[in-house]
Each structure stands twice: as C-alpha cells, then as structure tokens.
Design a protein around this nucleic acid. Sequence first.
DNA 1: GGTTAGGTGAACAGATCTGTCTATGTCAAG
DNA 2: CTTGACATAGACAGATCTGTTCACCTAACC
Lengths: 185, 185
Amino acid sequence: MAAQPRRELLLDTAQRLFSAEGYHATGIDRILAESGVSKATLYKHFASKEELVLAVLRRRHDQFLQAMERHLQAAEGEPVLQVFDLLHQWFHSGDFHGCNFINASAEYAQESPAILACTRQHKASVRQLLEQWLPTVPEVSRAGLAERLALLMDGAIVSAQAGGNADAALTARDMARSLLSHYRR
Amino acid sequence: MAAQPRRELLLDTAQRLFSAEGYHATGIDRILAESGVSKATLYKHFASKEELVLAVLRRRHDQFLQAMERHLQAAEGEPVLQVFDLLHQWFHSGDFHGCNFINASAEYAQESPAILACTRQHKASVRQLLEQWLPTVPEVSRAGLAERLALLMDGAIVSAQAGGNADAALTARDMARSLLSHYRR
DNA sequence: GGTTAGGTGAACAGATCTGTCTATGTCAAG
DNA sequence: CTTGACATAGACAGATCTGTTCACCTAACC
C-alpha cells in the first residue's frame, strides 16, 4: 500500500492545486495526474468535485484553528497579537495564495450554498476563538473587539495577496495593539 | 442600431455575470445569450476571454475610483470616513459580491500575470487616493495611514462577503475614526 | 441604386470538463 | 488457496469550453 492513505494524498494534492491555481481552473484529471491516484478511487472517496472541495475546506478549517490555538497558547505577551505573527509566517512561507475560504466563496457563492456556509462557519469560528482569548477585556466589549480583530486579519490577508504587501501582517498587528490598549483602558 | 453600443453591452453583461457567478464559472456563451450579442462581434472587440476580463476590470477600476472621489469631495466632516459610507451603501445595494479584483486574482493569479498586475495597480491607486485626502495629518505619516485605511477597507469587504456581516463597513468606519484621531494628535 | 461597415446565426474544430464503468492487478486475512 | 477489499489503467459518454469561419442580413451614406 502507498506510504500515505489515498484519501489523504488526494486531499493534500487537491488543497495545493486549488490554493495555487483556483478551484474551477483545477480539473479533476490534474489532481489525479499529480497524485498518481486513479479516478475510480477518487470517486469512491468523494461523491463529486464539490464534495472534494468541501473536504479540503473542512480539513483546512481544522488546520488553521489548531495553528491559531498553538500560537495563542504559546504566547508570552498578549495572546491575540501572536495570531498576527502566525499570519506573518504564513505570508512569507512561499505557500501563500490567500484565504482558501474567501477564494472558494468567490467561485462558488452562487453555485454551492454548502461552500458558502462552510466559509461563514469558518469566519465565525475564528471570531469565536479570538473572543475566548480576551480575558483582560470587559466582557461586554469582547464580541465587538473580536469582530474588529477578525476584520484586521482578513484585511491583512487581502493586502498581502491582492495588494502584494507581504508585510501586511505587521501593519495589522500594530493596529491590533492600539485597538487592544484602547479597549483595556 | 442597438440602443447601447455592443461593446458597452458586453462589458455590462460580463461584469454582472463575472461578479455574481465567478470568472471561470461564467462561459462566453452565457454572456452572449444574456446580452444577445453574437460571438463574432465579441471576438471583434476582445481578442480573448482574458482580454474581456481585463477590460471589465479596467472599467470597474475607473468606476470605483470615481465613486470614491465623489464621496471624498462631497464630504462634510472628515473626507476619508465618507469612503466607508460608500462601502456601506455598496454592501446593502443588492449587487454586492465582493471585490472584483480580489476575486479575479484568486482565479487568475497563476494563469494571467496581467490580471494580477491589474489588481495590484488598483489597490495601489486606492491607497494613493486616500493619501491625497489626509491634509490634516503630518506628511510623514500619510503613507502609513493610507495603508492602514486601505487594509480596513479590504477587511470590511471580506467581512461583508465571506463573513456575511453586511454592517462591516460601519465597524471599519469606527476603527478608521479612532485611527485618524490617533494620527492627528 | 450601390457600396460599405457592422452585426447575425450557425456550424465547426479541438480541447477539456465531470462522472461512469469495466476488466485487471495486488495484498492481507481467514 | 480462496475470498474480499482496494487500487489500477483506460475507454467512454455527454456536456461544455474557447475560438474560428463563412454566408447572409440590414441600415446608413454617397
């Protein structure tokens, strides 16, 4: 048997190609050719291309939230600021092609309500996680502040990708810092 | 002859479909069917689908910057804050499907360097225009502040589209307000 | 009336898309 | 050894994609 289970191999390849080339632009055949998996196997694991896209997004959701939690827990100073360092790393990793969810939604917003729903849920989870890491902020302000921090994250992602500003995370981090000090006062 | 010149009719139809359905998801035939223009005419005006996409983006660039300038000039209070009111109107217009440039870049970043370049230029122009409307801010701070305001705009657009938060522009406007007061001090 | 410019409709080419299916191969457990 | 689970290559169907070409039409202008 292959070193990697077929299903995981397919998800890895699909995630890489979808991110770099886009969803409609990446054909099933391309994923099969690069992964070396047969078409019958793909359709045994995923009922359709849309299901494959959803599986990639769900896995990406888990990966991203786990990475966020790691950074939040390992923080020495203010935890939520560490999230922007995570973004900074990501933007400079050579594997950055914008947010999978934003990109997928742009292509499938009309075509697949499930994909749009998956994106909405992802963004809501990010806000929720941020909110849990604002203990020094009055409870009434937490939701609003988490919304603002999430907006800064999204802004940084777009600035880095579409605007070509690879250091957007540092700018957003600085904005988050003044936002926090303002809210704590 | 038709009430609207063929070329403009094609651009209108293409812009509407590309925005709502995506670029790869919208076939040439669909644009022809909805506009009632023949295929030969389309290829007389645009050498390829990519050229059509570029023409749509360039027109959108002009439209957006003109709308920004209108709001900046008509402002009573702080001009740059009016830009977020423009966003707010846009998000609630029923014709909002995210930023054309962000979406196009996600689909064509690898496939077409020209489309990516068009997006970069658009985002740079927005920053530049903002910078020109910050007279009350020390000149050394203007570029940095314009970058931050542009980041807030992009964050609001993504929050509204992918996050489903139609009032993101109001949040971003409020963040911009404190940012401005901080910079003016 | 004749010319010309621009548009139409339809067929066509060639590629690519998703998804199905069949026949074959391989490996591990009973 | 047999059986069953899983994987393979590859043909195939049917649709759709971009882009080309050609014969015809129509309306304005000289």
